[in-house]
C-alpha cells in the first residue's frame, strides 16, 4: 500500500512537473507580446525582433487596401487616443476584416520593420459597438434619473 502511494505520488509530481515545464517553456519571446503605447513606439523605445502589442485608435478614412499585390497589403495608421497627431504606420498582409470601417480602435500584434513601420501579424478590432450597437450618447431614462435623484446611481 505504501509502495503504491509512493508510485502514485511520483506520478502526480511528474504530471505537475510537465504542466509547469510546458507553461514556462511556452512563455518565450516567440509567444509573448509586450504592450506598448504608440507614442512610446514613436520615441524609438523599441527593440527589433521582439513582439509588441499596440492598442490604439485607427485612422479608418486614410486606410488603404491593395489586393493586387502578393501578399496583399492593408495599410493604416494607429494613434493613441490622447495624442491624435502622433501616428504610426501599420502594415498588415491580410484582408480587411468586416468591421474595419466601424472600428473605434485596434489591437495589433507583430514586430517593427527596420524603417520604423509596424508589421502586424494579428489585427483585432475593438468595437464597443459590436454587441452594444450604436453609440447613443448614454441616453438617460426616467427610472435612471429617479435613481440618480435618490443617489443610487451615478
Amino acid at each position: 500500500m505504501r509502495n503504491n502511494n509512493i508510485k502514485l505520488t511520483i506520478g502526480v509530481l511528474v504530471i505537475l512537473g510537465a504542466v509547469f515545464y510546458l507553461i514556462f517553456a511556452g512563455l518565450s519571446n516567440a509567444t509573448t507580446a509586450y504592450y506598448l503605447k504608440v507614442s512610446e513606439a514613436l520615441q524609438g523605445n523599441i527593440e527589433f525582433g521582439k513582439f509588441y502589442r499596440l492598442e490604439g485608435k485607427i485612422d479608418v478614412a486614410n486606410a488603404s487596401f491593395d489586393g493586387k499585390t502578393q501578399p496583399v497589403v492593408l495599410k493604416f495608421q494607429i494613434y493613441d487616443e490622447d495624442s491624435p497627431d502622433k501616428k504610426l504606420i501599420v502594415i498588415y498582409n491580410d484582408i480587411k476584416p468586416d468591421n474595419f470601417q466601424e472600428a473605434t480602435g485596434a489591437v495589433v500584434e507583430g514586430k517593427f520593420n527596420p524603417d520604423g513601420t509596424f508589421h502586424a501579424q494579428n489585427l483585432n478590432l475593438k468595437c464597443p459597438s459590436k454587441y452594444e450597437q450604436a453609440d447613443l450618447t448614454q441616453p438617460d431614462g426616467k427610472i435612471s434619473r429617479f435613481l440618480k435623484a435618490l443617489g443610487l446611481k451615478k
Binding site: 512563455l27 509567444t31 509586450y34 494579428n122
Partner: peptide
Amino acid sequence: VSVGAPFFNAV
C-alpha cells in the same frame, strides 16, 4: 505582456 495562440497551443 500578453500571450497569444502559440502559447496556448504549445501547452
